Amino acid sequence: MDLKAYFKRINLTDSGPPSLSALRNLHRHHVLSVPAENLSIHSGEKIILEPSWIYEKIVVRKRGGICYESNGLFLWVLDKLGYQPKVLSARVRNKVSGAYGPNFDHLIMTVELEGRKWLCDVGFGEGIIDPIPLEDGWEEEQDNGIFRLRMEKELWFLERKDGDLWRSLFIFTLEEHKFEDFKQMCEYHQTSPSSIFTCKSLCSLQLLRGRLTYMGHRLITTEFTKGGGCVKSTRDLTDDEIPDLLRDKFQIVLKGKLIPKDEDITPPNSN
């Protein structure tokens, strides 16, 4: 795996030694270059949690990936650059039911710099663009919204502001894990009717002050405004339009035929 090729993939010439500014630059460029997408699941391609396979997919083939892939690649990069990242497990909140997913539902990581721990996550569609310090009550407005970290006992909440209310995105603890620990949940997200990834074909890319999202037979354009607001517009797509759109808007060309999907998620039997 070639770091120079990775830098080129995220439109960065180099990184330099570990520092907070370098970490911010890496994190931001990755989020703005690598889509959060699950198109492999809907085009006959299995997702494999092996670093070399993920590198080939995202860097060489210029694809995106689900959290395990995108954050898995970022984890490898940070490790190679000497940041000593720690792998954490997060549980994503379901927007409809309000319930949180199982352990290893989402992969995140922390890096320690300048006497602080920093939360890094380049694989969550509506998540942070820049790393944020792991501090209870920390609130920060980024290009795509206002975020807050909150702690209850040993449980951390990453929240996003929607109007006057805070909405939890996911919860996590600081218990450290290994990348391999997420393989079973990666399989779950490729097969379970309770996973958003099997029910909806998705591709979403963060833009400067905006987001472009393909879902099923729709293209959703989001413009973020100051104070955590946003304006959305939607365009319906035909089957014939989707491959060209993925190529032109996301630079993605699939190996197999995509079967567009946008179905309701089946609630699990228990939380």
Results as ranks from 00 to 15, higher is better:
Phe197Trp: 09
Asn71Ile: 08
Tyr68Leu: 06
Lys153His: 11
Leu81Asp: 06
Gly137Cys: 08
Glu187Lys: 07
Asp130Arg: 03
Val92Thr: 12
Ile259Gln: 11
Cys230His: 13
His27Gln: 10
Asn25Thr: 10
Leu119Met: 06
Gly98Tyr: 11
Arg218Cys: 12
Pro17Met: 06
Glu114Asn: 14
Met109Thr: 03
Phe124His: 09
Gly72Pro: 03
Asp14Pro: 01
Phe170Asp: 00
Leu134Val: 15
Lys183Gln: 11
Ile132Ala: 00
Leu165Asn: 14
Trp76Ala: 15
Gly44Asp: 09
Thr213Met: 09
Glu112Arg: 09
Ile220Asp: 04
Ala5Glu: 13
Pro85Ala: 04
Lys249Ala: 09
Ile220Cys: 14
Ile220Arg: 12
Asp130Trp: 07
Leu49Ser: 01
Glu126Thr: 15
Ile252Phe: 02
Gly115Asp: 07
Pro51Arg: 02
Gly64Pro: 05
Ile252Ser: 02
Ile252Leu: 06
Pro133Gly: 04
Thr173Glu: 13
Cys203Gln: 04
Gly44Thr: 10
Cys120Trp: 02
Asp14Gly: 10
Gly216Asn: 02
Asn103Leu: 11
Gly145Arg: 00
Leu119Cys: 06
Asp130Gln: 12
Arg218Lys: 15
Met109Ala: 08
Asp143Val: 13
Thr266Cys: 09
Lys4Phe: 10
Thr110Leu: 06
Leu119Tyr: 04
Arg148Asp: 08
Arg209Leu: 13
Leu81Thr: 08
Lys57Asn: 04
Lys226Thr: 15
Arg167Gln: 13
Asn269Ala: 14
Ile242Phe: 04
Ser194Trp: 00
Leu246Asp: 05
Asn271Met: 12
Pro268Val: 07
Gln251Asp: 13
Phe179Arg: 09
Ile47Lys: 05
